[in-house]
Nucleic acid binder design. Structure first.
Lengths: 151, 151
DNA sequence: ATTGATAATGAAAATCATTTTCAATAAGTG
DNA sequence: CACTTATTGAAAATGATTTTCATTATCAAT
């Protein structure tokens, strides 16, 4: 199997290529959702019924550390994970969160303008606040079509 | 005592004006930090040693529901609370989060441009995704001056 | 002001996501 | 193949938040 970006990054870090790690990465690559650790665990059980939830947590932490995965907190008490959008598998996007049903929708509108502004802001923040920026998130909170009810 | 915005909002909702609620609102008004429920609880204990942590959680939930307070998840496992920035007590701002020491800094740079872009984006999202947007957050993650170490 | 209905409170127990511990297992190296 | 050590899975521990329930405080109506 051809070595992928994330595998190279792992090997540079001295990490081992294991079945659980391959499986979890596969699941992340194939989903277009925003799975929690448990969502991923349940998926993984279908392929490897002996995998442990602990391993899922640890593997996700590892992926986050090597920059292959991004972790999001949308405010519903559990972390959610997505492949980092720099590599081609996913384009840069942000999130719409329904405050009622907690559904999450990706959007990519105005990314050009947004990236411009973010670049400018990042520069300003780097100098004015002496912060080295690594990444940013934009979340829109509101109500999805299904949850907009005439009150 | 003069009734404030949040009190009116509470009364419209049929909620009671109680000592714990007044106290917690006072604490929120006086801080310029990003306190967690427990932070607020500890503050509150100085004034009212019999207040319960449970009440703090419930009160914060209530304030969030009536729109007086905004809840943030910066990814360190505990929610943080701030007065909503529409009223004059706080101006519209976003956050810089240090990924190492977890410190949080407010920033207000480029708010004019940001609000313009966000307005445009909100409009687009409202129509294209049929989402009714209530608010948005922008988080920048990186490393603060203290935590930038030559590695 | 007193009363009464009921919303709000506080303490303790329960829940839920996540982390830690530790003995057993599997990866990569020689 | 054998060895060193990272990784795993199960169970227990943790920590934030929520629920339960008996008691207390608020507010509206007397």
């Amino acid at each position: 199997m051809k070595a992928h970006r994330w595998q190279n990054r792992m090997q540079c870090g001295g990490f081992r290529r294991t079945h659980p790690r391959e499986l979890i990465m596969k699941i992340l690559k194939e989903t277009d959702k925003h799975p929690s650790a448990e969502d991923i665990y349940i998926q993984a059980l279908n392929v490897n019924p002996s995998i442990g939830l602990t391993t899922v947590y640890r593997t996700l932490d590892l992926f986050v550390q090597i920059g292959a995965v991004q972790r999001f907190d949308f405010g519903d008490g559990k972390a959610r994970y997505e492949l980092t959008d720099n590599p081609p598998e996913k384009e840069h996007h942000h999130h719409l969160i329904c405050m009622k049903c907690k559904s999450i929708v990706d959007y990519t509108d105005f990314m050009k303008e947004e990236l411009e502004l973010m670049k400018k802001t990042e520069d300003a923040l780097s100098t004015q606040h002496q912060f080295k920026i690594v990444h940013h998130t934009v979340h829109f909170y509101g109500y999805c079509r299904k949850c907009i009810s005439p009150e």
